[in-house]
Simulated assay, not measured.
Amino acid sequence: MTDASSLPFPDGVAVAQVRVARPTDKLDEVVRFYRDGLGLPVIARFEDHAGYDGVMLGLPGHAYHLEFTRHRDGSPCPAPSHDNLLVLYVPEEGSFEALRKRIEALGARPVAPENPYWIDKSLTYEDPDGWRVVLCRTSGLAAR
């Protein structure tokens, strides 16, 4: 299997950052889920930018993060199918258990995954908007 981190971006295009952004009407609850439950630090926030408030969470020093926005007129955001997942691959059992305890301390409980692939190696949780996050054990597995 080829190590994807060694492959160049197609056509030599330079991409400096990846941000996954989505709206929510539950900004405070969603931020609490990802910040307090998953331990992702807030790396930026803004208020009333053209009617939007937003918070970016991510891993400091990495060029990828999540952005959640709320519009003053509302941000209807129906959750996608149960197969739309944010997957966090966790290499150490101690770290996996620490994340599980953090997220469950907020009241989140595992839900059954749609795809049975995740059953024996992970736990799936829903954020306050119903979007799913998978904590996947990687000990003994190759990250896919």
Rank of each mutant, 00 (worst) to 15 (best):
K121A: 08
R19L: 13
L38F: 12
T24S: 08
V13T: 05
P78A: 01
S5Y: 10
L106K: 01
V18S: 04
I119Q: 13
R109L: 09
D36E: 15
G74D: 13
R72S: 12
P23N: 06
L27N: 03
G58M: 06
N84E: 14
D48G: 01
L141F: 12
A16I: 04
P91Y: 02
R35C: 03
G61M: 07
P113L: 08
A108V: 03
A50D: 13
G94T: 11
F96E: 12
E29L: 10
D127H: 06
T138Y: 02
V15L: 14
V111P: 03
S139R: 14
A98M: 11
G140F: 12
A63Q: 03
V31Y: 02
A16E: 14
R100F: 12
A98D: 15
K101I: 04
R100A: 15
G130R: 05
I43W: 06
L59R: 03
V55K: 00
I103C: 00
A50E: 15
P41A: 05
R45P: 02
A142V: 09
G94Q: 14
R19M: 10
P110D: 12
H49S: 03
R45W: 10
A63E: 11
L57C: 01
G107Q: 11
A142C: 06
P76I: 14
E29G: 03
P23Q: 06
G74F: 08
L88N: 02
T24E: 11
S6R: 10
D3S: 05
E92L: 08
H62R: 11
R70K: 14
V15G: 00
V42A: 06
F68M: 09
A50L: 10
V133P: 00
E29R: 11
R22C: 11
L57H: 00
G140R: 08
V90T: 00
A14Y: 06
S6N: 10
L85P: 07
E114D: 12
A16Y: 06
V42R: 07
S139K: 11
V42E: 15
L106S: 09
D120I: 02
H62C: 06
E67K: 07
A79W: 06
L66M: 10
A21W: 06
Y89A: 05
R32V: 07
R102A: 09
N115G: 04
P110E: 08
R132K: 10
Y117R: 09
I43R: 01
R102V: 04
R35P: 04
D3C: 05
T69E: 14
V13I: 11
A105R: 08
R45N: 13
V18D: 00
D129H: 08
Y64R: 11
L57R: 00
E29P: 01
V134I: 04
V30N: 01
L88M: 12
Q17F: 06
D36W: 08
P116M: 04
D48K: 06
R45S: 15
W131R: 02
Y64H: 14
G140N: 10
L88W: 10
R45A: 13
E67G: 07
A142Y: 07
E29Q: 13
P113K: 05
Y89E: 12
G61T: 04
W131Q: 03
H49V: 05
A50R: 07
S122T: 04
G61P: 01
G39F: 04
